[in-house]
Simulated assay, not measured.
Amino acid sequence: MGKRNLISVVDMKDEWPALVDLGIKLKKERGHHGDPLKGKTLAMMFEKPSTRTRTSFDVAITELGGHALYLDVSKMQMGHGETVEDTARVLSRFVHGIMYRAFDYKMMDKLGEWATVPVISGLDNLEHPCQALADMITIKEKFGNFHGRKLVFLGDGNNVCNSLLYACAIMGMDMVACCPATRMPNAEILYNATQIANANGSKIIASHDPQEACKDADVLYTDTWISMGDTISVEEAVKLFQMYQINDDLLKIAKPDCIVMHCLPAHRGQEITNDVIESPHSVVFDEAENRLHAQKAVLYTLMKD
């Protein structure tokens, strides 16, 4: 099999269930899984700052026996006298894989097209596949299965929402994207995810009504109201998204054993209340930890000999 990328969730659609199980396995075996990536170097290119993505990828490649190389894109020549195509081809001669955290998915796609080593998205403005993988790992840990489960995403139909649509559809889990009409997820991704879900016996639904959407939910999920590149002010965001806040009122509508997820960083008092994020329903820090194990699963699958 030739070089593969993980830029969109669907790039590894057929392997997604195996990636979830591998992440759980590597988590259980932490410290005892040997050095399968010994001698491998991962270039980590960052346009956008990060806590979880940088730390989890760095620790993941290190614990698998490899090495992480941090590259600040603002201090690179890419886009400043050198084309993305040339950067991709040069880096491919030096390293065994590239993780790229970008503002623009078009740049991500171009890097993936021209690199001859695997390119892994650490987030762009269209998708965040590694976050979705960590989320699926967390859900399987908590419930043991996906079929018959319902995830409700509340707020801005952003990159995280887009990747969750694909991930839920692939795993056979129902999902409701509950967002204001002006901030719905990407229309093409919503359509494609619906088709995948239909084939897997689950449902993808778009909604603007949080009260209706949250009925019998197994998972309530939210993210920041102001996504990367947004020009919306905090005041405008509060006015637009206030009814989509995860709070005690919405939690009461969901199932009694519902879990609450947030990819972090959280703006407590905006998209989620402090009481909910600190409640027994919250799994946000388990979810954050699982970024490490998701990254390990991806790196192992794409970079091993």
Rank of each mutant, 00 (worst) to 15 (best):
K48D: 00
T194L: 03
G2I: 05
F103W: 10
H67R: 13
H32L: 09
E47H: 12
Y70I: 04
K48S: 10
S233Q: 09
A132W: 12
M136W: 14
D249K: 12
Q242T: 05
K40T: 00
G31Y: 08
A294G: 15
V234D: 15
L37Q: 13
G144Q: 10
Q211I: 03
Y191P: 01
Q195F: 00
V284A: 10
V219F: 00
V276N: 05
Q245I: 00
L299N: 02
G2A: 12
H128M: 03
V160L: 01
A187K: 15
A197R: 12
T182D: 15
P49G: 05
K13P: 03
G229V: 11
Q195C: 08
K25V: 00
L123V: 02
P36E: 02
D109N: 12
V219Y: 01
H33S: 14
G2K: 13
E235R: 09
G81A: 04
A134R: 01
T51H: 11
L250T: 00
D286M: 05
G97K: 10
D249S: 07
K110G: 01
H96T: 01
K215W: 01
S50F: 05
E15Y: 14
H33Y: 13
Y105G: 02
K106P: 04
L91A: 10
A288F: 12
I61C: 02
V95R: 05
F57K: 12
V20D: 04
K142F: 07
P256H: 05
E141A: 04
D216N: 15
G172C: 15
E127R: 03
M171P: 14
L133G: 08
D305A: 14
M228T: 02
Q195K: 12
I204S: 02
N159S: 15
A43T: 07
G201L: 03
L69V: 00
I61D: 12
I137D: 02
L164K: 05
M243K: 13
D58L: 01
V73E: 08
D248A: 14
G79S: 03
I137E: 14
A169M: 06
Y105T: 09
L164E: 14
M175I: 15
P185R: 08
S121G: 01
I170P: 08
C161D: 07
D257N: 13
N247E: 04
R30D: 15
N247K: 07
Y244F: 14
A134D: 02
P129R: 08
P118D: 03
E15M: 03
F57D: 06
E15D: 15
L250Y: 09
G39A: 11
S233D: 04
A132R: 07
A206R: 11
S227L: 03
V234C: 06
L133S: 10
G34T: 12
K75V: 06
D286N: 12
E235N: 10
V276Y: 05
T55N: 07
S282D: 10
L64C: 09
G39E: 09
L123E: 08
E287D: 09
V160G: 01
K140P: 01
I253R: 08
I204M: 09
A297D: 01
D230A: 14
Q77I: 08
Q242C: 07
K150Y: 06
I232P: 10
A213C: 04
V9I: 10
N5Y: 00
S282V: 11
L154H: 04
I277E: 11
A134Q: 03
Q270D: 10
C258A: 14
V176F: 11
L71E: 05
H262I: 07
M136D: 03
R183F: 13
P265E: 00
F46Y: 06
I61W: 00
K3M: 13
I98V: 15
